[in-house]
């Protein structure tokens, strides 16, 4: 579960990225977070990962008290959250296989386990047979799916995708959304930050809208069409 209680984040003296924000995302939910530039969406994810600390308020992520967490527990908190970055952040000099394996190396997974798991993940993101390719050989959409596979590698409880469909054509963005929906079926919480309203409409999931650091609407899934 992810729970923000009266969270404010002020950068410097007067950039109020989040203002007294309260929200709760249950385990296994699929949530879109939308809102204009500078609304505080990325800040939200940074706070969840203890990359930034809130100015005030309480944050709970997958059982961790993120604000008062002990330093040595931060890696464990982060292992419960897989992030798909907007710019993928794949290693150009590593094959697709190694890029995904890297995430598991880093947390000390045995080689034997890694090998099996990478194949499973490649299958899941529909990139079987691409393990030996280098990122530059892949299309943007395919690279994004590699990034998703890597985010899933350590079996996190939560997947966060920040702008996963920006700069991609309709087909590949639909493909990625379908995969993210499939990820949710594996009992994971999926948080998608996006400007892509067509995707939001199509999937009919819960949509949280942020503006100026506050939640201005929170529409549950399934009721989407009725409320609009």
């Amino acid at each position: 579960m992810i729970k923000f209680t009266n969270v404010s984040k002020t950068y410097g003296d007067n950039t109020h990225a989040l203002r007294n924000l309260t929200l709760e995302i249950k385990d296994g939910e699929f949530v879109f977070i939308v809102g204009p530039n500078g609304a505080g969406k990325t800040t939200l994810t940074k706070l969840m990962l203890h990359e930034e600390l809130p100015t005030s308020g309480k944050i709970e992520v997958n059982g961790y008290d993120v604000v008062n967490i002990k330093k040595r527990h931060i890696p464990h908190l982060r292992r419960t959250v897989g992030v798909v970055f907007q710019d993928f952040r794949l290693f150009e000099k590593m094959t697709v296989f190694d890029n995904i394996a890297f995430a598991m190396h880093v947390v000390g997974t045995p080689k034997r386990v890694i090998k099996k798991k990478v194949h499973t993940l490649l299958k899941l993101v529909e990139l079987e047979g691409k393990g030996g390719s280098y990122p530059y050989m892949l299309s943007g959409g395919e690279q994004r799916r590699v990034a998703l596979a890597r985010a899933l590698a350590n079996n996190p409880d939560t997947i966060i995708a920040d702008e996963p469909t920006s700069n991609s054509d309709k087909n590949s963005s639909e493909h990625l959304m379908r995969l993210l929906a499939k990820v949710q079926e594996h009992n994971k919480t999926v948080i998608v930050i996006t400007h892509d309203l067509s995707a939001v409409k199509r999937l009919d999931k819960r949509v949280i809208t942020l503006a100026d650091g506050a939640v201005i609407s929170d529409i549950p899934g399934g009721d989407n069409d009725e409320e609009n």
């Binding site: 990359e51 908190l77 995430a103 947390v107």
Partner: peptide
């Protein structure tokens, strides 16, 4: 990236 993924210090 290692930090993000949850590698220990």
């Amino acid at each position: 990236l290692m930090r993000y993924i949850g590698a220990t210090d």
